[in-house]
């Protein structure tokens, strides 16, 4: 399990806790002081990232926010990608 923190310019903090096996994410947990409406969508986002090859993270996050009616405040979909990728680069 690896964790990374990413401070979004302007205030909010994102943390990702990721377990990766052979280039595939097997566990993803995101936390932080951001706002997401509806709140329960975070669980769906994490599920959408589970079993994702590491080179598909961007696509999966993008698709999630395209398909689902979810609003974000204080962070953007790109910030989620950034913090998850940070756990892998480490």
């Amino acid at each position: 399990m690896r964790t990374a923190e990413y401070k979004v310019p302007g205030g909010k903090l994102l943390t990702a806790e990721v377990e990766e096996k052979n280039g595939v994410l097997v566990h993803v947990k995101i936390s932080g002081d951001f706002f997401m409406h509806p709140e329960a969508a975070i669980i769906d986002l994490e599920a959408a990232l589970c079993n994702s090859p590491t080179d598909e993270i961007e696509d999966r996050v993008e698709r999630f926010f395209y398909v689902n009616k979810v609003s974000l405040f204080g962070v953007s979909p790109e910030d989620f990608v950034k913090v998850i990728k940070l756990t892998i680069i480490q």
Binding site: T15, S31, D33, M36, I42
Partner: peptide, 9 residues
């Protein structure tokens, strides 16, 4: 704490 926050963090 906020809904998305990690309690231990």
């Amino acid at each position: 704490i906020g809904y998305f926050q990690s309690i231990t963090k």
